[in-house]
Write a protein that binds this DNA or RNA. Structure first.
Lengths: 152, 152
DNA sequence: CTAAGTAATTAAGCAGGCTTATATAATAAG
DNA sequence: CTTATTATATAAGCCTGCTTAATTACTTAG
């Protein structure tokens, strides 16, 4: 591996480490206040990151979390009761369910991310316009590449 | 707020959203495999982000997590048993304890972050050298600014 | 058509993380 | 010095998220 690549990785790692720590804390507190378990928060986010047309199955989620289907099914019951997700029949396989976020669920997730918004505004205030532009283009590039990676 | 600042924030938000989702998942799986609770992982990271000379108190941690001191004290018992953290007397206030990571604890935390390493190498492989340089400098700047923000 | 396999659900039971209540020791305030 | 407050620890008990086991419904393979 080249030295420049090492340097790149170190820079990314450092920022990620900070962001991860703050995000983790934020999500933990949000979940606690709203009465969700960590598993439910991760589930909601996982559904959110799926193709909204297809949703995802119970097995998808249990595989992602590393728990049993039973656990996911029970956990979803509560989210359904609260109107955050819905179970739909999979037309291609009637054993399977398509789990989808309801508008209410999507709104809730957005809200959970929005608290970050204030932080982001603070950050913006600490940066000169040129600095913002520089970081912005780096992040756009990164988003694109990460998306590519997840697909492959 | 200026349009350019909005655009900046949106770019950062998008990347963070991806990173958060993947990090969350990664940490969840790691904790599960290693037999730690989410609260313990967040605790360890919190200690890690403190001044290593001072450590932090039980109250610090319970405030950070939003749980009682009793919960933290019990949770730390297990981490102490495993040799990951140690309780030291605070010389300035003998009621209080300084909670510190042991070398073993630090190593464990590093390990929990290292799995990200592979991902980072994959990412680097998807990027041209110029792209890496661009992102790298943006991240160095960002780390600096976030550190400033946390201090203030 | 039958048998085996897969997806989800339900129920019972366990374990661990959290809370409250209580106790101890040290500090701060009067 | 006495009293109140703060920091932590311990014990008992609750709650909930998870597991296993059993069931239903559907799909696939032979």
């Amino acid at each position: 591996m080249s030295d420049s690549s090492k340097s790149f990785q170190e820079a990314v790692r450092l920022t990620m480490c900070q962001v991860r720590h703050l995000s983790m804390h934020h999500l933990w507190r949000f979940a606690k206040e709203q009465g969700f378990s960590m598993a439910q928060m991760i589930t909601l986010r996982h559904i959110y990151h799926q193709d909204p047309a297809k949703g995802c199955s119970i097995s998808d989620i249990s595989g992602w979390l590393g728990v049993t289907n039973a656990a996911v099914s029970q956990s979803l019951d509560k989210l359904v009761d609260q109107g955050l997700v819905e179970r739909q029949e999979n037309p291609h396989d009637r054993r399977s369910k398509q789990i989808l976020l309801t508008p209410k669920g999507e709104e809730m997730l957005k809200k959970s991310m929005q608290a970050k918004q204030t932080w982001l505004e603070d950050l913006a205030a600490h940066l000169m316009p040129e600095e913002q532009t520089q970081i912005e283009s780096a992040f756009r590039l990164l988003t694109e590449k990460i998306t590519d990676m997840e697909k492959s």
